[in-house]
C-alpha cells in the first residue's frame, strides 16, 4: 500500500513536470503573439521578436478597432452561429441511423462520408464560386453557409457516429419498449446523451469556421460580407505587412474562441453524462 502510494506520487510528479513542460510549449508562442501585438514594426524588428514591448499602450489595437474590425467580427459571429446550429442538428440526425440502425445502405453511406472527407478543398473553389453566382449569394455571408456546413459534415458525422455507438443500447431499447418511436427516442434519449460529442464538434468546427480563409476569400468581395480571416489580408500590403498590427488582429480574433472553449469544455467533464442518464 505504502509502496503503491510512493509509486503514485512519483507518477504524479513526473506527470506534473511533463504537464508544465507542455504548458510552456503551448503558452509561449501564444505569449509571443500577444507581446508583439503591442510593438511597432521597427521596434519589433530591431529589438527582436522575443523582447518585451517598450510600451503596453494598445496603439495597434485601437488602430485595428477603428479600421472596421467590428464589421468583420459581427459577420463572423453571425456566420458561426448559423453554421453551427445547422451543422450540429443535421449531423446529429445523420449520425443516429449510422450508429444505431441496421439498414442495407449503411456501409456504402459510411464509405461515402469517408470519401467526402478526402476531397482537397481547393478544387471545389471554382464550382462553388459558380454556384454562388447562379443562386446570387455571391458576396454575402450566406454564400459561405453552404460550403462551411458541407465541408464540416463528413468529419462531424464520423466523430459523432463513433460517440453515439458508445451509448449503451439498453437505454434505447427500454425507450422503444415504452413505445417511443425512432424520432422520439432520438430527441429524448440520444441527443441529450451526445452532449460531449456535440461539444467536441462545436469546438472543432467552431475553430475551423472562425479561421476559414479559402472560401471566405473566394466567395466574398466587399467589406460588408467579409469575415475575420480576411481582416488579416485587409491589413496586409502588397509588398510588406505590418506584423504587429496583424498580430493584434489575431489576438482579437482568438479571444472569442477562447471564451467559447471555456464555456463548452465544461461539457467534456466526466459525470455530466451520468447525470443526464439519471435525470
Amino acid at each position: 500500500m505504502n509502496n503503491s502510494r510512493v509509486k503514485s506520487n512519483i507518477a504524479w510528479t513526473v506527470a506534473g513536470i511533463l504537464a508544465v513542460f507542455w504548458f510552456m510549449i503551448t503558452a509561449i508562442p501564444f505569449l509571443f503573439m500577444v507581446i508583439n501585438s503591442f510593438k511597432g514594426q521597427f521596434e519589433m524588428l530591431q529589438k527582436g521578436v522575443f523582447d518585451l514591448p517598450d510600451s503596453w499602450f494598445p496603439t495597434n489595437f485601437i488602430g485595428v478597432l477603428e479600421n472596421g474590425f467590428l464589421s468583420y467580427f459581427f459577420n463572423s459571429v453571425i456566420l458561426l452561429a448559423i453554421c453551427l446550429t445547422i451543422l450540429l442538428f443535421i449531423t446529429a440526425c445523420a449520425s443516429y441511423p449510422l450508429s444505431r440502425m441496421k439498414f442495407k445502405l449503411r456501409g456504402p453511406t459510411y464509405a461515402l462520408i469517408v470519401a467526402c472527407m478526402s476531397i482537397p478543398i481547393h478544387v471545389t473553389l471554382i464550382p462553388i464560386f459558380k454556384m454562388s453566382t447562379v443562386i446570387r449569394t455571391y458576396d454575402s455571408i450566406f454564400a459561405l453557409i453552404g460550403p462551411y456546413v458541407a465541408f464540416a459534415i463528413p468529419i462531424s458525422c464520423y466523430i459523432l457516429t463513433t460517440f453515439m455507438t458508445s451509448i449503451p443500447a439498453s437505454l434505447e431499447e427500454s425507450a422503444e419498449i415504452n413505445g417511443c418511436g425512432k424520432f422520439r427516442t432520438f430527441f429524448h434519449i440520444i441527443l441529450p446523451l451526445s452532449k460531449p460529442g456535440l461539444s467536441t464538434l462545436a469546438i472543432y468546427n467552431g475553430v475551423a469556421i472562425w479561421n476559414e480563409f479559402a472560401f471566405a476569400n473566394t466567395l466574398t468581395q466587399s467589406r460588408k460580407a467579409q469575415t475575420l480571416p480576411l481582416a488579416i489580408s485587409a491589413f496586409k500590403g502588397e509588398h510588406s505587412m505590418n506584423i504587429p498590427v496583424i498580430m493584434s488582429v489575431l489576438v482579437l480574433t482568438v479571444l472569442p474562441m477562447i471564451i467559447l472553449f471555456i464555456i463548452l469544455q465544461e461539457k467534456l467533464v466526466r459525470g455530466l453524462m451520468a447525470g443526464a442518464v439519471k435525470g
Binding site: P97, I128, F151, K182
Partner: peptide, 25 residues
C-alpha cells in the same frame, strides 16, 4: 420503418454533400 427513419435522418446531410462535395468531385 427503420428504412424510412434512416432516410429522413440522413437526407439533409446527403443532399448538402451532393451539392457541395460530390458535384465538385
Amino acid at each position: 420503418s427503420v428504412r424510412i427513419a434512416a432516410t429522413v435522418f440522413l437526407a439533409p446531410v446527403i443532399i448538402i454533400m451532393a451539392v457541395f462535395i460530390i458535384y465538385p468531385i
